[in-house]
Design a protein around this nucleic acid. Structure first.
Lengths: 177, 177
DNA sequence: CTTCTATAGTTGTGATCGCAACCATCGTAG
DNA sequence: CTACGATGGTTGCGATCACAACTATAGAAG
């Protein structure tokens, strides 16, 4: 039997992970998309601020692993929409503390149960034993890939990874993702 | 204890899946990105054509769950690059059969072992029992979300799902993802 | 044969993403 | 006190993505 050159895309782990993640995200996003007018980046910020109380954009970026420009723009939107406000400056004049407005907190408290319900729904399709194994496997993969798994890990954390930009060679158009 | 309104983003399944998928994808993409000048959509097309021998753009779109425009453009690029060529028309004059060129097949045969190695590497961070459980869980989740898991499922398959477009309301800018 | 609806594939367009560059402030060194 | 490198945050810009609209062909109905 020769070295494996057989690859079924539908059985290929990276592909499956991508597909699953997209599906789950889209699925969940629809819940808060048109109904509440917020999108994934905004949702992540709400979730972070909702749990943390208050923190800087930088902290949000690190925690959500979103690019700081994405955070910046999503925060701008959320402020416009009245969900987030600046919670005064810090000793450090460069950074700005952010927090939810009452309106933002109401939204947060509306969304969290929906999100958790959806999560439970997903895990319910696995029996408890399998679900536990699945989460355990996730933990290990995250560890192997050095993804921060706790707040604590974050504070000590590695800086956000650079995203390679593509195909300067041989093509007329460059791409990424 | 009140209804759960606690949500740790870092422990939230959809977030974790997304993060993991992105990381794995990026990780893998770098292997073939600058070195071979192809990107995720192109890779998927190579993989499909490599395994299928020949098929239509439509079939590729269904199989990879990529939007048909994405397929169209990636195919255009691959044809320009000499990796893919038209393999004559069909009875149906609208569709075009595609297949790898020899050059494309060489690339395919270069990439597949790399991809499989990376996959094995990932799964190796889980011991065999856990890996099996993980894959089993993936299967079940895919089934629950009605994602096609085999070629056979595809042929009978549900049409590709529409991707909801976002936030027409209440904001000045609309977004998606 | 003509008409109407559905499908394969391409192109136009608006939106998001992330990198690079930028501005402002901090902290340290001279 | 001033100079300089580092960091928080914003903005410009190029690239991708997916939806909508379009072209062309297929197939059924009249």
């Amino acid at each position: 039997m020769p070295a494996a050159t057989e690859l079924q895309l539908l059985r290929f782990l990276p592909f499956r992970l991508n597909r699953l993640a997209v599906e789950v995200s889209q699925n969940l996003a629809q819940i808060y998309r048109q109904r509440y007018g917020i999108d994934v980046p905004e949702w992540r910020i709400l979730a972070t601020l909702g749990a943390e109380g208050r923190c800087t954009a930088q902290a949000i970026a690190a925690s959500t692993r979103m690019h700081k420009t994405r955070v910046s723009r999503a925060v701008a939107y959320l402020r416009e929409a009245g969900h987030v406000r600046v919670a005064g400056g810090t000793a450090d004049g460069r950074e700005t503390q952010l927090q939810l407005t009452p309106r933002g907190r109401r939204l947060y408290e509306t969304l969290v149960p929906l999100a958790l319900a959806r999560e439970r729904e997903l895990l319910a399709t696995l029996d408890p034993v399998l679900a536990a194994a699945f989460l355990e496997a996730l933990d290990r993969l995250e560890t192997a890939l050095q993804l921060p798994r706790t707040e604590a890990a974050l504070r000590a954390g590695r800086p956000e990874g650079p995203r390679q930009t593509a195909r300067q060679t041989s093509g007329s158009t460059a791409r990424s993702t």
